[in-house]
């Protein structure tokens, strides 16, 4: 009970700090804008294609598979670019300003602090995704897409974002400088995204391993409307492992002084 309270206190503080400065608004606005752009491009493309198909007298098109899926897959890439801005300050800024001394001398465990920061960042991320539901609403007004694949797509986005956040927290906990944290986080995210480009060129065994490592690759099935335990396990264990390493990093900092 107490530990939940502590986690919530930190999460609340983190979430507020995003909106105390323009950063929260900028991130949400930027994401909504880019998402809207992809939404527009794929919608136009989809409309053209379906009217073309209808003219040829055949070939059903499905808005879930032929449009929404691509919008969500592309938004995964935008998230990859936006996420370092969310996570870079989490630990680095506390260390620089000395407020980490307040947290570490309060009756909180390291895990409570880390979970608080994780859920705080997840809160902002959820707000980002919530705004994009407006676009989906438009589709429901003018058409009748299926909601289940959309729901699984958003679940996938949440989990994928969770991986980015846990990794971002880890990197932020390694430095005092939030710019260093941001750049490093971005580089690592990019690596984890493009790693499957190497996979496509190499032999079958390497490809399987490399594709497995790519965070974005695991999202494909969610976007298609498939919730596969394999991917769930991957994402959840990735998040747990990232948070675990963050705890170790915070603890080792303590020993080094």
């Amino acid at each position: 009970m107490n530990s939940v309270r502590n986690v919530l206190a930190i999460a609340d503080k983190e979430l507020r700090s995003y909106f105390a400065s323009p950063i929260g608004y900028i991130i949400i606005g930027l994401f909504a804008l880019l998402f809207g752009w992809f939404f527009y491009v794929y919608l136009t493309f989809f409309v053209q294609r379906s009217t073309g198909m209808a003219g040829m007298g055949g070939g059903a098109t499905n808005i879930n598979q032929d449009m929404i899926r691509y919008v969500l897959m592309n938004s995964a890439v935008i998230i990859l670019f936006v996420m370092p801005m969310i996570t870079m300050r989490t630990y680095a800024e506390e260390k620089r300003s000395g407020t980490i001394e307040l947290l570490l001398t309060s009756p909180l465990t390291d895990v409570q602090i880390i979970l608080g920061k994780f859920f705080g960042a997840m809160g902002l991320y959820a707000a980002m995704l919530l705004v994009t539901l407006l676009y989906m609403g438009i589709l429901f007004i003018y058409g009748n897409p299926e909601w289940r694949p959309i729901a699984s797509g958003y679940l996938g986005l949440l989990l994928m974002g969770g991986c980015f956040i846990s990794l971002g927290l880890l990197i932020s906990s390694l430095t005092k400088n939030q710019i260093v944290a941001g750049v490093l986080t971005f580089a690592v995210f990019l690596m984890l995204w493009v790693i499957n480009w190497i996979g496509d060129q190499s032999g079958p065994t390497t490809r399987v391993i490399v594709n497995y490592l790519s965070i974005v690759d695991h999202f494909d099935d969610f976007a298609r409307g498939i919730i596969d335990t394999k991917h769930l396990v991957y994402y959840l264990s990735f998040i747990t492992f990232g948070l675990f390493l963050t705890a170790k990093s915070v603890d080792s900092e303590r020993w080094r002084g």
Binding site: N2, R5, K13, S17, A20, T99, I100, L102, T105, S106
Partner: peptide, 28 residues
Amino acid sequence: TGYLPETPPLYPDMTVREYLDFVARIKG
């Protein structure tokens, strides 16, 4: 234990009341 470090650990974007309320929360 109450602790005042060498540099007071303040969050610049909080008001004094918000800050003290947050500290009270994490101190239980």
